[in-house]
Design a protein around this nucleic acid. Structure first.
Lengths: 206, 206
DNA sequence: CCACCAAGTGGCACTAGCTGTCAAAGCGCA
DNA sequence: TGCGCTTTGACAGCTAGTGCCACTTGGTGG
């Protein structure tokens, strides 16, 4: 995750620097001027690269705005792929999320926070962000259901992963609603609390 | 929902006919030729309206493809708004979904089925569809949480609604994976089964 | 040190989704 | 029939995103 190191070929270093400059500047411009009001031409002018180069680094305008999201989920997926996955699944997934959150780059907090605030107000970003989750969900289900024999098994596993995502959504939404105070530690605490709240949520009344 | 009637002013009738022709033709063209391969110009040529008129009826290309989704959720939201919501929330939401599904237009099955199949293969549609769900979620939470006093209450309600959505996703995905055989009845049965499966999903192992 | 190869970049032209504007056409009503 | 309001079409314009090709630059072997 934090491969900041300079023991890469010069070319790769340069490319990585461009990638980061794009994500960083995009987040700044989008926050300052608004997402829709900022064109990719603006961004490319600021970073001093061609639009063509932008699209070699990110698939879309939404993509660069949600780079922090993408970082989290790809790290999570990598980590989950290394696990045994033999105990209670929901608990395993929760612990894995905790571990991944704890292992993210120190700078990741700030980027993720800004990203959440942004996508809160831009429907296109929200939808795209949900798309990431969905993709991750699908990937997790795929790695997990290899041993599942029946459709019922597959459905239950799918449902478990979906509930995991539901808890994550709730926690991160609450975090954003609180102004993201306390940073990552608060987020991790909220995640834990939310998972603990699940049994209650099944039976609670309005 | 099924306001097919001809006791509307002539103008409204014409407009409604255009709306339906657009949605219907879009679904057909997208299915036959592929979503990306079909341009809005193609669609507008076929329906014989200007592109400007298209955008007066639908907000985007994704919008017209997901008209059936939109129909379901707006009907659901309308119905939920009429309820008391004093019993166990998750169960209430489930029953409301059952009622709404049962009350949809007879033709809705076919359109929804085609829509699901489409969005299965087009990431942009999937993301947009998730966006609808999210919007609906937000609306439900808003109507429900008016009486909630504490943040914990709000979080629990949010979580309940998110779990509702999780179950719906699982059920409809399974329905699509089965080729949507049996139509709406099968879908409704799957929804019921999925909700019954929730307690199991919390503790199951991989 | 130079020459060569491949990776990466920039510039250009082009498609397609989407919006603002305004004049023309069509419906509703007296 | 004629007036007013709503809806439509045509056009111009903006921005996201892609294909193409020439050019630069880092890596590598002679």
């Amino acid at each position: 995750m934090s491969d900041d190191l300079r023991d890469l070929p010069l070319r790769e270093r340069k490319k990585l620097r461009t990638r980061r400059a794009l994500a960083e500047t995009a987040l700044r411009l989008f926050t300052e001027r608004g997402y829709d009001a900022t064109t990719l031409d603006d961004l490319c002018d600021t970073v001093e690269v061609s639009k063509r180069t932008f699209f070699r680094n990110y698939r879309s305008k939404e993509d660069v705005a949600l780079a922090a999201d993408s970082d989290l989920w790809s790290a999570y997926l990598d980590y989950v792929a290394t696990l045994k996955l033999d105990g209670p699944l929901l608990e395993t997934l929760r612990v894995a999320l905790d571990t991944t959150l704890g292992a993210m780059d120190p700078d990741w907090d700030r980027r993720f926070l800004a990203t959440r605030a942004l996508s809160e107000g831009v429907p296109a970003l929200q939808a795209h962000s949900l798309g990431y989750c969905q993709e991750t969900t699908r990937a997790i289900v795929e790695t997990v259901t290899e041993g599942a024999r029946t459709d019922v098994d597959r459905m239950r596993l799918q449902l478990t992963v979906e509930i995991f995502v539901a808890a994550w959504h709730t926690a991160s939404l609450q975090w954003t609603a609180q102004g993201s105070q306390g940073g990552r530690d608060t987020l991790m605490k909220l995640v834990e609390e939310t998972f603990a709240m699940i049994p209650d949520a099944l039976t609670c009344s309005a």
